[in-house]
Amino acid sequence: MDGTARLALPLIAPGQAQKEMTHNEALALIDLAVQAGVTAARVDAPPATPVIGECWIVGDAPEGAWAGQAGALAGWTAGGWRFVAPREGMSVWSAGDTMAWTFRAGLWRRGELRGLSLRVNGRQVVGAQAAAIAAPSGGATVDAEARATLSAVLAALRGHGLIDT
């Protein structure tokens, strides 16, 4: 086995000479992948003057030194470009758009959050989608303005996915 199963980090072979080379390469890749932060996402061309430690999510049509690295994390190091292939569930903070990017189902997705509920100060403010609510109809006294308002509220709740359609 040449590398680790998840991040393909190089492994030191028994009896290997210059073990520090393999070890340092693994550390450089870990530095890119763990608690990753990028300058920007979906960039196809490497910057002309990168700074050591800067990192990008490579776009779908990479060119130059990034050719063949679509979707990878590209980081500039003292030894040149290093690439880390994304893994399912990997998250990266992008300073360029101040959003989290998550790799899911083979694609980098910007700003998508997943969960069962949203809590603010310990109080649930959004939970699972509620059942459908029928639009107002019938009744002895029909108030057109009230019905229009209720219909608008229900449409907004449906539009945000908070209640079923």
Rank of each mutant, 00 (worst) to 15 (best):
A65D: 13
Q124I: 07
F103I: 01
Q69Y: 08
A155Y: 07
D143I: 06
G15C: 14
G79D: 15
Q16K: 12
L9P: 12
W101Q: 05
A146P: 07
A144M: 06
M90Q: 15
V92H: 03
D164I: 05
M1W: 10
A45Q: 06
A28H: 04
D164A: 14
L107F: 09
G96F: 04
L118I: 14
W76I: 01
E25I: 13
A144D: 11
A65L: 05
E145S: 15
P10V: 09
A144G: 07
R147D: 12
L73F: 03
A67F: 09
I133C: 02
M90I: 09
S117V: 00
R87C: 15
A100Y: 10
R42F: 01
G111P: 01
W81G: 10
A95I: 11
A36Q: 02
L162H: 11
L116A: 14
A45G: 02
G80A: 06
Q129F: 00
R87E: 15
R158V: 04
W101I: 03
P136Y: 00
T102E: 13
P62F: 03
D2G: 15
W108V: 01
A45V: 06
M90H: 13
A33C: 11
E54P: 04
G139V: 06
D143G: 02
A130I: 02
A33I: 09
A152E: 09
L154T: 06
R82E: 07
D97F: 02
G122H: 00
V120H: 12
S94R: 04
A105C: 07
V38C: 08
G138M: 02
R158F: 02
G161K: 03
D143H: 08
L154F: 05
G53P: 06
T165S: 15
A40H: 09
W76N: 00
A45N: 05
R114F: 11
W93N: 07
L29R: 10
D2R: 15
L9M: 15
S137V: 07
T149Y: 13
G71S: 11
A132F: 10
F83V: 08
I30Q: 13
A95R: 13
E20P: 07
W108T: 02
A17H: 12
A131D: 09
M90A: 13
Q18H: 15
P62H: 06
W108K: 05
D143Y: 03
A85L: 08
D31K: 13
P62S: 08
A78V: 10
E88R: 00
I12P: 11
G37V: 10
L11F: 10
G115L: 01
T98Y: 04
D44N: 08
S137G: 04
A5W: 13
V43W: 01
A155N: 14
R114K: 11
D164Y: 07
P50T: 04
G75E: 07
M99D: 09
S117N: 05
A155G: 12
V34K: 14
